[in-house]
Design a protein around this nucleic acid. Sequence first.
RNA 1: GCGCCUGUAGCUCAGAUGGAUAGAGCAACUGCCUUCUAAGCAGUAGGUCGCAGGUUCGAGUCCUGCCAGGCGUACCA
Length: 549
Amino acid sequence: MERTLREILAQAGEKLLASGLGPIEIEIPKEEGFGDLSTPVAMGLAKALKKPPRKIAEEFVKLIDNKNIFSKVEIAGPGFINFTFTRDFLSDELKRLITERDLFLTENVGKGRRVQIEFVSANPTGPLHLGHGRGAAVGAALANLLKETGFNIEKEFYVNDAGRQVRLLGLSVFAKYMASCGIDYPFPEDGYHGDYVDGLAAEFKEVHGDSFADKQFDEASENFIDFAYKKMLALIKKDLEDFGVIFDTWQSERDLYSNGDVVQAIDDLRVRGYIFEHEGATWFRSTEFGDDKDRVIIKKDGEYTYFAPDIAYHRNKILRGFEELVDIWGADHHGYIPRMQAVIQALGLPPESLRVLLVQLVNLLKGGQPVQMSKRAGEFITLREVMDDIGPDTTKFLFLTRRSDSHLDVDIEVAKAQSSENPVFYVQYAHARINSIFEKATETDGYVAGSQKSGDFDGALYNDEEMRLVKKLLLYPMVLRGAALTHEPHRITFYMQELAGLFHPYYHKYKVITGDVQLTKARLALCEAIKIVLHHGLKVLGVNAPDKM
RNA sequence: GCGCCUGUAGCUCAGAUGGAUAGAGCAACUGCCUUCUAAGCAGUAGGUCGCAGGUUCGAGUCCUGCCAGGCGUACCA
């Protein structure tokens, strides 16, 4: 529907102005009286053409072809052009939706462009918490969105298996292990305190006995670090799998060092003239690209800062051939965006090659009271706990009903209590109900199972409520496209709720299966179309579309 | 101090690239199950879009200042 209008308007635009108008804005009017779709294009041209908007709108309307698909083209308000489609056109579109299915719902805007989405990338030093879960839900949904709109997507988890944090984990486990061997060993000041650390120490002892009891940490560090972070990584992987989030690749930070990527990346920047030495340290001149200050990448003591492997990692992504990089970070890392953007530009790429999506941390409440979370003290609610309590579908939906950069309060008590009246069930229920109708229809004489898929029905039989549903369905491709281009999966969530919100009252008011064969066929077709769209939307969100509930 | 994000109904949040009379869910109250699923439906309410200016045909949306909350501002990760 919107696609057709977009083409028609573009043609008219070329006639109006030889240079064309560029992308023409198409809106969904707030009121039904304003037509099915609308464009404010004339108002935007008023200044350039030095004519009143309504006058421009009139001229524009004259240039529009294919008028037969509109039942009304109206100039309204300050200069809106409102389009109302004919029933025949809408009915044909619905038939296409039913027969072409996903092909009709999706539009190839990506044209196979290679995009990598890196998300979660939690340190393998403990279980995933709720914030990671939110990142996982958003990243997976975004990946689905972009896949459905023609992008070539790879999902990657960056494993911070080098550096201070995993070392600290190893040391924490070492201390607990020593204690369990009856040896007094000081627990590291910034060590990890969670129960899982005790678990790791116990497991280690089970495997190795007390054969390490006479060792210093420096002698045994690799044993402990490797053992601990690999266990944690396996746990993270399992949590994500159970959450329904599967990664294509897992990139190890250690490999960046052993491959020589880190050294090469710095050499590369040096050749390009963005590296300098100052007070014994090696710096990256990020101010060249708008960062507040230059950044150290090799410290006075010869150690790399965390920034060095990050540079190498992003360079590595580019060398792998990705045309666009999406990083999903916790909002507390927003301060790193300028320096990462500087890296991208220093490597010769346009700044828009890297898009950083910030996911706000999740604020956890328990019965209205904030729960203090501290990873170091081992006090935090894990994704696992919430997922086990309210289920992966509800958890994901919850994370996806809000813009990713908005603060999110999750009251764990409320989330549990509301598990049966959560919006996700509202949407899933619509899907299940339609399936139930189909089951009933196949039992009824005259309706062969799946016959509604042929698109053989008479759209003229639809009443107002049904036409409203038809139009809503035909807007889905536009919503999907918009959500993909803006990287905003929550738009799909809202659309899903709106669609279900039209279907349930309709279901309640009208019987689909009636004595009238033609009417029944038409209604089954409409239900089929709704089911197709619900299924597609839920798939994008990573949520199940159950046939029974 | 400086930078980024947020401020919309009692609560949680949408609001599309600057468009027409600012929306939904939850919570509250009242009704509806011999019917294709009551995880549903129908009805009832709520607003100085943080405050003050500005830009223009038009501002919740853009700009400036202020207020409030969060985060960041390391040769930590």
